[in-house]
Design a protein around this nucleic acid. Structure first.
Lengths: 151, 151
DNA sequence: TTTTCTGCAAATGCTTTGCATGGGA
DNA sequence: TCCCATGCAAAGCATTTGCAGAAAA
């Protein structure tokens, strides 16, 4: 991916914050940078760890608050998990499928056709007005298949 | 649905417990009955509430423990949500799509073609060995569209 | 200068765990 | 009888909240 697109994505997020009357602080900008550049779907904890070098006094609560705002203004997609290992996608903040390794917790974005047909079929069948969806595939990634240790 | 199929499903769960050396207690049997008969995808709290009449001294921890065992032996499907409002499906304890009302939290099972094609495509693209998936559609049910109050 | 944000700590809420008593098989 | 299950309370843990001082605009 070109560097300009990362910058472009960051700029989109900054503009979205400004439009909703949120201030741009150094801490927030740093969170935005990580979310705009990373394709690893980082957790709040991961974001926090990456920021501790630049902001030694930073609180993890600030990361939580920033991510919460980004969710509200739809600039980040939350991949929530019941065990509390939530992950965040700042590159594509709209519903799309994910492939998740149940061992090493790596998350990829597969290239699949959209689910518009399925969504329409569900709406027709159930009378729901569908506004979002979530599609996750679970399994072992190539690396974890190859080196499958015990435990 | 015929009554016999409910009984049949209950019997399957009992057999599965016995095969894995788990004891059949009145409390466990009651949890199994609710999971086998309900199509509402009940939460642990809901199961607990329905059991308090018959078992006044019952602990919610017992419901958690029973559901946990059923998960292990694949006799219940857990629909986990990051806000802790987990729901359980004892009728179809295998991956299948769900339609979820974001207002009243009703959950339906739409009749959709299986995702075998998509699963194979994901495996081909990513090199994963896919073992499970999760597909949720979110929106407003017919009733909540009609009577959409504030708050 | 005003309003919002940060950082710390306490609170929250679902779920899990430890342990003594009770009950299946 | 021998283990396992129950019920109670305490612990766990990611996330949220309250608040006083700091900083954006």
């Amino acid at each position: 991916m070109m560097d300009s697109s990362k910058t472009a994505r960051l700029e989109q997020m900054v503009v979205a914050l400004r439009k909703t009357s949120h201030r741009i602080t150094p801490q927030r900008l740093a969170v935005l940078e990580i979310l705009a550049e990373s394709h690893a779907h980082p957790s709040v904890e991961k974001i926090y760890q990456q920021l501790r070098d630049r902001f030694p006094t930073m609180s993890i609560a600030t990361v939580y608050k920033t991510v919460s705002i980004l969710k509200e203004i739809k600039q980040v997609l939350e991949l929530g998990f019941p065990d509390g290992s939530n992950r965040y996608d700042g590159n594509k903040p709209f519903p799309h499928p994910h492939v998740i390794c149940t061992k090493c917790r790596t998350i990829f974005d597969p290239e699949l056709d959209t689910l518009v047909d399925l969504t329409l079929e569900v709406a027709r069948q159930t009378g729901f007005s569908i506004t979002a969806h979530r599609l996750d595939f679970f399994g072992l990634c190539g690396n974890c298949q190859e080196f499958h240790h015990d435990g």
